[in-house]
Write a protein that binds this DNA or RNA. Sequence first.
DNA 1: AATTCCCGCCATCAG
DNA 2: CTGATGGCGGGAATT
Length: 882
Amino acid sequence: RNAVMEIFFIENIFDRSRMAPKTPIKNEPVDLSKQKGCTPERNPITPVKLIDRPQPDPWTPTANLKMLVSAASPDMRDREKKKELFRPIENSEQSDTPDLLQYDMVDDCTVDEFEKQRPSRKQKSLGLLCQKFLARYPSYPLSTEKTTISLDEVASILGVERRRIYDIVNVLESLHLVSRVAKNQYCWHGRHNLSQTLKTLQEAGELQYGELMTFFQHKEQDLEYKFGERKKETIPDSQDRPLLDFSESDCTSASANSRKDKSLRIMSQKFVMLFLVSKTKIVTLDIAAKILIEETQDTVDHSKFKTKVRRLYDIANVLTSLGLIKKVHVTEERGRKPAFKWIGPVDQCQDQVEVKDSVNALLRGACAPYQICATGKQRFTRHASFNGAQPCEGTRRKVSSEPNSPRQERQDEYCSKMINLAAVCRQKIEEDSSSARKPSITSPLSLLPVPGDSEFCVNPLPQAVFPVVQADVPNLSLPNGVSSQALQPCTPTASKTENGKPTLLPNQPFLCFPSSSLFMLCGGLQENNLRETLPTTGDVGKRSVEAQAAVPPAACQKRSSHKCASPSAPVDDEEPAAKKQTMEQSDVPLSLVVPKSPKAESTPGSGCTSAEHLEAFHLDHASPAAPEAAHKESTKPLDSQEQERWSQNKDPDEPSPGKEQISKENANQPFLPQYLFVQPTAGLSSFNFLFSANQAPGAISLAASQLPSLSVPCVVVPSAAVASFPLVCSPTITGPLSPVPDGSFSAATSMNFSMSGLASTTPVFIGTTAVVTPKVSPVPSVDPQQPAHPTLHLSPVLARSCGAVKLDSPVCMGHPVTLLKLQQPSSTPLTPKSIRPAHHEAFFKTPGSLGDPVAWKKNEGNQTRNASSVQRRLEISSTSPD
DNA sequence: AATTCCCGCCATCAG
DNA sequence: CTGATGGCGGGAATT
């Protein structure tokens, strides 16, 4: 062990020393590359020296090696790097010695095959690094424990230079996820205050950028805007001031100005504000850069702009890792521009509006099926896709075949419409709610009992609120807490989001429904797992792919990573059939369907969406009262059909007749019980739920086992496999349960939920928010994992966290909640994939608790091995050398 | 060629 | 002065 440690240190040292010298070298790089006979890439690994070489410099021993290496072949080098991949340690040097050896080996045998990958740049990306970083800490740490972060420690563990950690921490600090306590020390707060922070930012943002953004957005949409010009005008001077309070708020040291003002922190806040202020929640990089340059408007110099953009990428990477934004591209006349879309919690969510609206529509008698999504924009998107409408952003694929039509435009229009609609609705809602904030509104299903009208929807945020589904929301965002991952049921469509990014996936299928009438469907959990995983780097890509696979075709297309093709890219057609099939099997995620008014569809001409179909069937099969598991069976087949259709379904127009009828029926009887059905695949992972819509609140809770029997309006049907998990639905509220507690308020609540969310993964809680009040101290002994459940394999951490969360809530008390295990099968249902889960777990564990520093390394699977040696060292050292 | 964004120099800041 | 921070921009990797 000692030896190992020594090595470790040595390496580090080495590294450091190397760095210093490096400076001088800089000049040469050019040569290097040229001379490159040797190493093609800049060798991150090797110190600069190599580079120098050409120079007069005397050689260092190392240099020699390097030369050799380089001489050997670039490829080799690559491989090497690749191996390093996960290795936390800094890239560097360690390899020297080893390298040599390896090289030799390499020579002999061709190594390359396996490692095609190599560490490429991506592996070193800030986003990935950030994920690793976040994975080390729980999203929602117990208040009791304070986690301090030592920059040095983290840097060494993650194997990066400190400088990089600063980049991450600064952004996190801007969102108050961490705060600096002392030199080199930060305190981890987690996401507890995130919503509050965002709210504050939003407010601030409206003041500062409200108009501006509006302006830009309009501009963009219709015309081209010229850069600076307008902007300046619009921009108020107000910007000077640093972001308001927040920046200061916690900062201990903050004094103030100085260069800090320019800091990444401020920029980050401003950047976030732009999203919050933006109606579309999409901000293009160039606009952001322009706006953020603020000060000297005119000094638009190009270089400055470029620098700003660089910084924005840095910030964006971190935010992406947090699951707050995702990358998209907006297509304008000018062409496609990089942009980012906010996918984090939104205070005011349009979704709500939508929901509301839909609800209203229902009440009015509208019949069309409607889908709702709760949370963020993403959901939005999804819907769209569900509907057949074109999704807004990237998601959009051409749904139907209309090669010629300007689909993009349409899409945009669609988006705009939706937005407008949302706005309109929102008001309406507010009105309604205020007037009728009765409990009634919150029907049993409704998640949040929160008294505050609109608020309830809002704050609670989607994610948090519905545990059921939603777990994911967070999930994407971070791996860290166990929480997140959970399950997300995937919606068939939804998935489409970005693949590349891990985060995206998140959407969950769940919804909030204010009125009872809604249905929820939950799809298989499979995906959940994937999501969970996300944190890690390399995997992500893969994972996403998988996820996609799971997902319905429509949804995801992109398989490739991040970059999405242009939005307009056709969707289904492209999809490989195979893929679809796959998806079909597993997926069927759920979707919510709500009867909707026709209008909802607006754009999409297509009426039928998968969801709809589902609905239809389900409806058919399911008896209103309480369908049972039996349905599942029937359903499955259905699913497939459905899916197929779906995939094909280009025909919007023909909704299935049946479905319509159904919907109508519903319409007629608005309150009929409707249910949501979820049928994922049969076993495994998916759960099926049926909820009747109108039910009385009280009825809902059920144990899994009981499902069918329940008289309750809702039925939950777990898939067979799953059956074991218990679902808990607390009736929202109303019931007997204690009413919502005072609620600490939405914010708090929501938070809680989210936490629970994790838990949610499995257990579903549907209930009032009140239920979860996590604050409570950790549960005594919880044993979340019940042996009974086959599925549960929670990582300890998870379990623990879950336990804590749920415990508190009253609901929980009632019965043991089981958590679903995230890992579970989700991935693809039965497939062997199971392997993954393990990783996931690891991933999430907090290092401390589990002591599994290594977790992330896992990602890539094979490669890992080699790397491992290095890693190991690290691990050891870090872990406990003793 | 454009987009991303890693790397790390070096100016500042803090002690 | 030294170490901690972190702005900044070159230029390489990716798209």
